[in-house]
Design a protein around this nucleic acid. Structure first.
Lengths: 160, 160
DNA sequence: TATTGTTATACTCTATAACTATA
DNA sequence: TATAGTTATAGAGTATAACAATA
């Protein structure tokens, strides 16, 4: 496994455990993310950011403002505008002006958008289950817990 | 934590554990990777793929062929050519023709490249240690083990 | 003045495909 | 024919910065 032909092979014998851990994590994430991107493309002709945006909206039946989406998806608002434009052109989302603040608009899934997202989300979940599902429950639980601690730390360490 | 303003907020109440696990893992990875990219840029004016390529070469004092680098870094050979061109222009790596197969060339770090990489790798390791280091040793170990299982599975599941 | 969202633009990263020179 | 590497190109994904409308 140490000589596996992938990014983890970047680790050198003397490297510390934290570094090996990070390389393994990065390799795992890149493999899974690439697979998800490929399948979203080939089966639904869409991209991960578009899927993510629709997933955010699905949780918010009352809709979300562009700025909220920008913060949640951690990308700049110009990019949200671009993704929203595409999805709106395809009839999957709709913009509505906010009365109380006429600079803002709220984005919502259309009925077609909801139906489309439901199909994608079902497939997406089955892909993830297929990739993670054979891990023993105890391992998945341990992973979830450890990642929770890690996320906490990283957020704290990068909050400058 | 469930309402943290990040990608993990994509998870809906009814989502299965595997999906929540994946979203948490993706969020962690993206946070860390973004931080590493920013610091490589601001402190060393370089990028993650360039750093990765140099890291591969540092492990191989005898050098590596372009095709080997392509396989290990899991990108197409055209991209390796591009990164190698940049690094060669800066005097960090050098191409050498292989006598036994004149189609091939071998890439090696130059002395300057080795020295430069050593500085970057030291900083990089301290960043990673800073981000992961406060986790209890037991959690890091659990994470490393669980990711090993996961990687195994994902490689098997995506090897079509 | 500050904020929301848009527009314009540029850069990184990656893939595909046509090409060359060997094998 | 097949392979190693190069070149050209296109597209995703992202950031920065200038801008208009509104607060």
């Amino acid at each position: 496994m140490t000589d596996a032909p992938d990014l983890e092979s970047r680790a050198a014998p003397g490297d510390h455990q934290a570094l090996r851990l990070w390389l393994r994590m990065l390799t795992c994430c890149n493999l899974i993310e690439g697979e998800i991107r490929n399948r979203l493309r080939s089966e639904f002709d869409t991209t991960l950011p578009r899927f993510d945006l629709m997933a955010q909206l699905q949780r918010a039946p009352e809709g979300m403002k562009m700025g909220e989406l920008s913060r949640h998806m951690m990308v700049t608002s110009g990019n949200i505008t671009g993704i929203a434009d595409q999805l709106e052109k395809e009839g999957l989302v709709v913009r509505t002006k906010v009365e109380s603040d006429r600079r803002s608009s709220v984005l919502q899934l259309t009925p077609v958008g909801r139906e489309t997202f439901a199909r994608m989300a079902k497939a997406h979940e089955s892909w993830i289950t297929g990739l993670f599902g054979d891990m023993p429950e105890a391992s998945r639980h341990a992973l979830f817990q450890a990642l929770g601690e890690l996320k906490h730390q990283v957020v704290a360490a990068t909050a400058d």
